[in-house]
């Protein structure tokens, strides 16, 4: 029997249940990650949307974040959505909050504005066939600058909102809030590539 993939979802705060539901629809075993010990045995990690400062405070404690950085540097794929994109970024505009600093990106928080400016829109993804992706942006960040190893997968009104750097993936929007499974499948394909 083929062994089921096991993906961790960081469950400190935020929309981790929605990521769990989406992954389970794709036939993946999900491990909720609340401490360093829960990182054992996972082949990939998702950092959900939520409040990046609230999540960062707990990653700072007990070598939790350090362990994630080490795993990512060893090739374990990590996917951050919204707050997750901020936490993966090397530099954050006008903030000295904690981040994992894994991706060579410079991000701006609440970049589209406060909740009143939150929106949904159809966006094209580079290299994908089929219909555009319905994307939900909630007090969303975007990428101001991306380093040379960072591949831009999508832009919306001139702003970078979906990026990949080797085993790392980050979106400014929330694929866990819509029924379209393609973004999670795309991440699972990256996990497969790094299994070999």
């Amino acid at each position: 029997m083929v062994k089921m993939k096991k993906i961790g979802v960081l469950a400190i705060q935020g929309a981790f249940r929605e990521h769990r539901n989406t992954l389970e629809k794709l036939g993946v075993e999900v491990q909720e990650v609340r401490s360093r010990e829960n990182l054992e045995g996972i082949q990939g990690l998702i950092i959900p949307g939520g409040e990046s400062t609230a999540i960062g405070k707990q990653l700072e404690m007990n070598d939790f974040g350090e362990t994630i950085v080490k795993m990512a540097n060893e090739g374990v794929p990590v996917f951050g959505t919204c707050a997750g994109m901020i936490l993966l970024s090397k530099r954050i505009d006008q903030s000295n909050q904690y981040s994992l600093g894994l991706m060579d990106t410079y991000v701006k928080r609440n970049a589209f504005g406060r909740q009143i400016a939150s929106f949904e829109a159809d966006i094209p993804i580079k290299g994908w066939e089929g219909k555009d992706l319905r994307a939900v942006f909630i007090r969303a960040p975007y990428v101001l600058e991306a380093g040379p190893q960072v591949k831009v997968l999508s832009e919306y009104s001139g702003k970078i909102i979906f990026v990949r750097q080797e085993n790392l993936l980050a979106s400014a929007f929330h694929p866990e809030l819509t029924d379209d499974l393609r973004v999670h499948q795309f991440f699972l394909d990256i996990v497969d590539q790094y299994q070999k």
Partner: peptide, 14 residues
């Protein structure tokens, strides 16, 4: 509705 309820979803566990 998705955007309105979505922010509450992001506050969960907090």
């Amino acid at each position: 509705w998705k955007v309105k309820t979505g922010l509450a979803e992001m506050l969960k566990g907090g």
